[in-house]
């Protein structure tokens, strides 16, 4: 399953809930969700621990818009909107953690 997270981990618990409940698959961080994938953020270790269970992606245009394009932590892949579409197509189902 593809899990889409669009919230900053410092503001809401969407990513935390996703990591707690979801059993695996892929996580795509979009909108304010991309802050979770940046080096030095408070949720970095939490997300790093999850890399063994999930493939983690972040939407590059959202990172760039926020001036964080060069801060992506190791182990997280970036995709553009076309990559977002591919992730949706590749996974049997998806869920947005609103």
């Amino acid at each position: 399953m593809l899990h889409i997270v669009n919230k900053s981990p410092a503001e809401r618990n969407a990513l935390e809930s996703c990591l707690r409940v979801a059993q695996g698959g892929a996580i795509l961080l979009i909108e304010d969700g991309v802050y979770a994938a940046t080096r030095g953020n408070a949720a970095e270790n939490h997300l790093r621990d999850a890399l063994s269970r999930f493939k983690v992606y972040a939407l590059a245009p959202d990172l760039e818009a926020r001036g964080m394009g060069d801060r992506v932590m190791e182990g997280v892949a970036t995709v553009d909107y076309g990559g977002f579409v591919d992730l949706v197509a590749e996974h049997k189902n998806c869920q947005s953690w609103l």
């Binding site: 409940v21 695996g24 869920q95 953690w97 609103l98």
Partner: peptide, 18 residues
């Protein structure tokens, strides 16, 4: 449990979140 729920989510066709 969270694990049971996560497993159930994987089995769905359509997941709508509100």
């Amino acid at each position: 449990s969270r694990a049971e729920l996560g497993k159930l989510m994987d089995e769905m066709d359509v997941v709508l979140s509100f």
